[in-house]
Computed example of a mutant assay.
Amino acid sequence: MLYRYGKDNNGRPVKKAVVYTREEHLIPAYKIDPDAFKIVQRLKDNGYTAYIVGGAVRDLLIGKTPKDFDIVTDATPSKIKRIFRNSRIIGRRFRLVHVIFGLKIFEVSTFRSTIDGSVGNSFGTIDEDVMRRDFTINALYYDPILEQVIDYVGGVRDIKKSILRPVIPVDKIFVEDPVRMLRAIKYSSTTDCQMAWSLRRKIKHSAHLLSPVSPSRLTEEMLKIINSGHSFEIVSECLATDLYMYLQPSATAMMFNDPQFEKNYLINLKSLDELVSKDKDARLGKKLVFLIKDFILTLTDWKKEILNSSSVGEIYIKTWTECRNFVLPMNPQRTELEYAIRTSLREIGISIKLPKKVLSQPVSQKKDTAGKKKGSGRKKKSKKVNDAV
């Protein structure tokens, strides 16, 4: 075991980080994405420091193969851009660089300072950058060239002990970014790292902080839950800590009022997790079915609706409107929600085979009794949200 030293205020050497060698961390070289390796190598060849950071290191240490490899460096975004022609700078205040290799995109960020807290945008050093990371298991740096894990906060020890421990003080971590509460539950469920009772209590008492979070961020987090393969565990814990009412308020209200609906909803999430484990690339619409199918059953007397086959178009439009409101504030891609609704109706016994112009008409555009449309507004393009993991 090696150590990285720094200096205290009096100039005396102090231990800053533990450095784990290949024999100690046992990360297999073949699990490192070769293009991520190239990025680190090229940054180093140009005189900069660079590491694989965060969730990728965590996954490597617990034996998983990371889906994404994020990289951090002391090079500024403009300097990174000069080194990699296959890159683009994104963001305005919090600037990052995306380095592109074919279909793969690698996020390369610059060390950030703690001068403005854990969400500031000033550049800093690795000693500061580590103190901005949310939890110790995500605050690890890996040098694939030297095959060393740099640990400033005891993250390797916490992974071995299966503990989820925050880096940022508990009285600040969720105030500065409320979405960290959702991440805490997700990490606990997907890594088997247990939260301390005090941390879980803090999350429950801070749940209201999610209220002003933008729908786009909540959509991103909800899609991560849907695609995680652990949605049952995550949603169950979100319900227990009062977070789910901000992710899916309509579903939460119905579960509160009807224990049977809650039971069915959670059973459907288990089926969703089975689908993801078998086919992780299944389209989002197939996954959304498990969130809306039991809600659709509550909308009407479907036996009577099936007998009135002439109203199929009207049934679809009304069902789409209700489902769209049901999943708010999540805003999935419209075509995927349409697919989920048609699939759910088909399971009931109603086959939707409508012209494209009917399937894509705005929800506000209704038909009168003569079958003519009221209003002539054009369809607005809905913002697409990537099927994030």
Rank of each mutant, 00 (worst) to 15 (best):
Y3N: 12
R4Q: 13
K7P: 04
K7Q: 14
N9H: 06
V14K: 09
K16H: 09
T21N: 04
I27C: 01
Y30C: 00
K31L: 07
D35Y: 10
Q41K: 14
K44L: 03
D45L: 12
V53F: 08
G63D: 06
D68R: 08
D70G: 06
K81H: 11
V99P: 02
F106E: 07
S109N: 14
S113E: 07
I115L: 02
I115Q: 03
G124I: 13
G124V: 11
T125S: 15
I126K: 07
V130Q: 05
V130Y: 05
T136F: 00
Y142L: 09
Y142M: 09
V149M: 06
V153E: 06
R157C: 07
D158C: 04
K160S: 07
V167P: 01
V175P: 09
P178R: 03
R183M: 00
Y187S: 05
Y187W: 09
Y187G: 02
T191H: 07
W197Y: 11
W197K: 10
L199K: 00
P215C: 04
S216G: 08
K224C: 11
I225W: 01
G229N: 07
V235F: 05
T241P: 02
A251L: 11
A251G: 06
A253H: 11
Q260G: 00
L266Q: 07
E274N: 15
L275V: 13
K280Y: 12
D281A: 11
D294P: 05
L299R: 11
K303R: 13
E305C: 14
S309C: 04
V312C: 05
I315N: 12
I317Y: 00
W320K: 12
E338K: 09
R342V: 10
S344M: 04
S344F: 03
G349R: 13
P355A: 04
S364P: 03
S364A: 13
D368I: 12
K373W: 15
K374I: 15
G375P: 09
K381P: 00
K383H: 13
A388R: 14
V389N: 08
